[in-house]
Amino acid sequence: MTRVATASRTATRSLGSRLGTTGLVYLALVGVLLVSSVFVAVQGGNLFTAANTVDLFTRSSLLGFLAIGMTLVILCRSLDLSVGYVAALSTVIAGTTMAGDPSRIVLGVTVTLGAAALIGLANGLVVTKLRVNPFIATLGTGLIIKGYLDTQFQGPTGSIPAQFQMFGLSRIGVLPVSTLVMLVLAVLAVLYLRRTRMGFHMYAVGGDAEVARLSGVRPELPVITAHVLCSVMAGMAGLLLASRFGTGNTLVYNNGYELEAIAAVVLGGTYLLGGRGGVAGTVAGVFILATLDTVFNTLGVDPFVKDVLRGTIVIAAVAIYARGQLSRTAVRVRFPSGGTPPASSGPGDPPEPPPLPPAPEPLVRGGKR
C-alpha cells in the first residue's frame, strides 16, 4: 500500500511538472465543466444549452477585465482594492460624457479610460513614493471614490447611446462581443508579460525587488505601470457595465468585484507574493468561477451557499499551489545519513567553495612571531 501511495504521489508530481501550474488550471477547468455538466444532467437539466453558454461567457467578460489587471499588480507583489470603485466611477463618467449622443462615444471612452489611468497612476505613486502598503493605499483610494459618488450622485446618471450599448448586449453566435474583446486583451497581456522588457521587469520586481534593483531595474516603474494598467482594465469593466445598464450606476461598487478578481487570479495559479503566474492561468480561473456561477443559478442554489462553496474552492486551490511550491523548493539532502561526502559536485549542484587560507600567526613585540 505504501508503494502504491508513493507511486501515485510521484505520478502526480510528474504530471504537475510537465503541465506546469497553468496547465493544471486548464485541466481543472475541464474537470469542473465535466463534473458540472454531469451534476446538472442528474438534476434534469443541460449545462450546455445556448442560454447557459451565453450566460457563462457574459459573466466571464466582466470578471475577466478586472482579473487581467489584478494579475499585473499581484505579479509585482502589490494589490489593488479600488478596482470596483473605479469601475463604478467609470460608468458615471461614461454616462455623463456620452450623454446619449452617438458622436460623443469616442470622447466618452477616451475620458473614461484616461480618468481610470490617472487613478492608477495615483495608486502607483502612493505605493512606491510614499511607501504606503498597497492594501491601505488602494483601499483609501476606493473609499475616496465611494465618498465622492455617494455625495454627488443619487441613482442612475447620464445616458449611453444605443450604438455603444451593443458592446455589452451583442454577440457572435453564443460568444458575446465583450468576451471576445476580453480574450483579445488577455492575449495582448500575455504577450506583454512574455515579450517586452517591462513584462520581464514586473516578474523580476515581484520575485525580489532588491535583486531587481541591483540588476539595473528601477523597481518603482513596473509597479506604477501595473497599477495604471489595472485601473485602465477596471475602466474597461466600467464601460461594459455602462453599456449593459444604458446609464451610469454608482452602486456598482457594492458587488465586491475586487474580491472576485483576486479569487480568479489566485485560482489561476498566480502567487500572491508576486513573481510567479500569469494572465493565461487567470483566464482559466475566470472561466472556472463563471462556470460555478452558471451552475448555481441553473440549480437555484442559495446565494449564501454559493459564497461558501466558492470560498472553499479558492482556499483548496491555494493550499494545493502552496504544497506544490514547498515540494519544489524543499532543500535536498546533500549527504545522506551514514554516507560520505561526494568527491565532486554533480552537474546540477552549485560548486563547492574553495578552502579558506590558514589564518596568519599573531605578531609579538619586536616584530617576531
Results as ranks from 00 to 15, higher is better:
Tyr148Arg: 00
Ile93Cys: 02
Gln154Cys: 00
Leu185Lys: 00
Val132Ser: 13
Gly158Phe: 02
Val127Ala: 12
Thr112Phe: 07
Leu169Asn: 10
Val73Ser: 09
Gly95Met: 02
Ile160Phe: 04
Ala99Tyr: 10
Leu72Glu: 11
Thr141Ser: 07
Thr151Ile: 11
Thr128Glu: 10
Val181Pro: 00
Ile74Ser: 05
Val184Thr: 06
Gly147Tyr: 03
Leu107Asp: 07
Cys76Tyr: 10
Gly108Tyr: 01
Val190Tyr: 01
Lys129Phe: 09
Val184His: 00
Val127Asp: 07
Phe135Asp: 12
Leu89Asn: 08
Ala186Pro: 00
Gly84Ala: 12
Leu175Lys: 10
Ala87His: 13
Thr91Ala: 08
Leu63Lys: 05
Ala122Gln: 09
Leu183Asn: 01
Leu143Phe: 12
Pro102Phe: 03
Ile93Gln: 00
Gln163Cys: 09
Ala94Gln: 03
Leu113Phe: 05
Ser170Ala: 13
Ser60Phe: 12
Ser178Ile: 13
Leu118Thr: 05
Val127Leu: 10
Val132Cys: 06
Val126Gly: 09
Ala162Ser: 14
Met98Asp: 02
Leu62Met: 12
Gly155Ile: 00
Leu149Phe: 01
Thr138Phe: 14
Gln152Trp: 08
Gly95Cys: 02
Pro161Lys: 09
Ile144Cys: 05
Gly155Ala: 01
Met70Cys: 07
Gly140Glu: 08
Gln152Glu: 09
Ala115Phe: 15
Met70Tyr: 03
Gly173Met: 11
Met166Lys: 14
Ser60Asn: 08
Tyr85Gln: 13
Val127Trp: 15
Val132Thr: 15
Ala88Leu: 06
Ile93Met: 05
Ala67Tyr: 07
Pro156Asn: 11
Ser61Leu: 13
Pro176His: 07
Thr97Ala: 15
Gly114Lys: 09
Leu79Arg: 03
Gly147Cys: 05
Lys146Met: 04
Gln154Trp: 12
Leu81Gly: 07
Cys76Glu: 12
Ala94Glu: 00
Gly155His: 00
Gly95Asn: 03
Thr128Asp: 06
Gly173Pro: 04
Gly155Met: 02
Arg59Trp: 10
Met98Arg: 05
Ala87Pro: 08
Gly100Phe: 14
Leu125Arg: 05
Val177Glu: 04
Gly64Pro: 05
Val174Ser: 03
Val190Trp: 02
Phe167Arg: 07
Leu188Met: 14
Asp80Pro: 07
Leu130Ala: 13
Val111Ala: 08
Ser170His: 10
Leu130Asp: 09
Val111Phe: 07
Thr138Asn: 10
Val126Cys: 11
Ile74Asp: 06
Ala88Phe: 00
Gly84Thr: 06
Leu183Lys: 02
Ser78Asn: 12
Ile144Tyr: 01
Gly124Asp: 06
Arg59Thr: 12
Thr138Val: 09
Thr157Met: 15
Leu149Arg: 01
Ser170Trp: 12
Ala122Gly: 13
Gly158Pro: 04
Leu62Ile: 15
Gly147Leu: 04
Pro102Lys: 03
Ala186Phe: 00
Leu130Ser: 07
Pro102Gln: 04
Val190Lys: 00
Gly95Asp: 02
Gly64Cys: 12
Tyr85Met: 11
Gly108Trp: 00
Gly114Tyr: 11
Pro156Val: 06
Leu183Asp: 02
Gly100Tyr: 14
Ile74Pro: 03
Thr157Glu: 13
Leu62Lys: 03
Asp80Lys: 04
Val187Gly: 05
Ala88Thr: 04
Leu188Arg: 08
Gly158Leu: 03
Gly168Phe: 10
Gln165Lys: 11
Pro134Asp: 05
Gly155Gln: 02
Pro176Ser: 06
Asp150His: 08
Ser178Gln: 04
Gly69Phe: 15
